[in-house]
Design a protein around this nucleic acid. Structure first.
Lengths: 206, 206
DNA sequence: CTTTACATACATGTATGTATGTATATAATA
DNA sequence: TATTATATACATACATACATGTATGTAAAG
């Protein structure tokens, strides 16, 4: 039995992606051989090369599978009209992000792969620069939220919207890195909600 | 002529370290063969293996050479008694850090290697966890500075010293990552002084 | 005379890409 | 509807290319 139905083929593709995530995370992207991925997935390298051009494309698949829904979530919160105060929307999106990170080990794996177990050279340099754009979109959306906060008067007097937007972005990015650098369970995981609250409180009026 | 004087040997060691930095940066640590390092250094693999146990030890040497003086700088500023307001010392240390980063391409190279061109698995996982301790010391020193600021009344009323300390650390770390992710020259390099000033202004009284 | 500071040579393991084989799902045709 | 043709979904096999570690050689320094 060699030829599978389309459905079955999609399943083995998914198995390969799952295996890749696991092996990337354990061995690092460079030291991961496609043969190891195939073995964990229960197939041979033939199957891997059939579904993906090579390691870079496989890496991309691993990332996209997790990142698209994550970005959508953040955008949805920032666009949610039910938040009267834009600062609440910003805080909610950040809080939600770290909550998902806490609850979803798969997401943590992918972040750890991208931040600690991958070298961005050659093919992977492009892969990464391409991944930067959607994050820029989020950044812009946060900037606009701060602008609206300034207009509606919820922002503390004297603070520049653009400046605090960049500050918030750096804060989030830095917090994420620290959490993963030190090992998620070890670090200041418990302090995150307080840190986010404190961060936002600094720029609220009153 | 094979055997060199001690002085000459120290020089070739340095050449190897310099070559390693360059090749690590260009190819990524994994894809760097010690033969490539040797070639760039103008020696053979024999010399590399003589001076270093292997790639991991060489990587460590590349890092230490640049990081020790950098950490010393930051500590010196934070310990400087001439700053009346601890918040000034904190701001100065951060400003100084990004100034050095701007002025020293070698430092940027090493940071880029560590953050974008190295996979922290196996031997390198230990290498990195070991690198985390000195940064923790800095973190603690910043916490203490914020505590003193609270005591001497320069901190805005209602802000918790520990919370803003963590916020500052996340901010710095995040800013560094962003600068290098996007390519130092492209990004918000020009905005850095303003960002640092805005970050500190948020927690100053008045 | 011994150790240092390398260069050279070798033995081995392992990843990669591609080429080829093959059985079956699926579409085309009659 | 039965048959045929073709493309699919892989497995297998091969050819190549490096990187690594170590062992050994060697000339000069100490």
């Amino acid at each position: 039995m060699v030829r599978k139905t389309k459905e079955e083929a999609g399943l083995t593709r998914q198995q390969i992606v799952d295996a890749a995530r696991a092996v990337f995370h354990e061995c690092g992207v460079s030291r991961t051989s496609l043969e190891a991925v195939a073995r964990v997935a229960g197939v041979t390298r033939g199957a891997v090369y059939w579904h993906f051009k090579g390691k870079a494309e496989l890496f991309l698949a691993v990332r996209e599978e997790v990142f698209s829904p994550l970005l959508a979530r953040s955008h949805a919160i920032l666009d949610d009209e039910r938040y009267t105060d834009p600062l609440d929307a910003i805080e909610a999106s950040i809080t939600d992000f770290f909550k998902v990170l806490d609850e979803c080990p798969t997401l943590r794996q992918v972040f750890e792969i991208m931040m600690l177990r991958c070298e961005y050279v050659d093919e992977f340099a492009e892969v990464q620069s391409e991944a930067l754009k959607p994050s820029t979109d989020l950044q812009v959306k946060i900037e606009r939220a701060y602008l609206r906060a300034a207009e509606c008067g919820s922002l503390r007097a004297g603070v520049e919207p653009f400046a605090v937007a960049r500050d918030t972005w750096a804060f989030s990015s830095g917090l994420l890195h620290q959490l993963l650098d030190v090992g998620f369970e070890n670090g200041l995981k418990a302090e995150v909600p307080a840190m986010v609250a404190a961060h936002m409180a600094l720029r609220r009026k009153g």
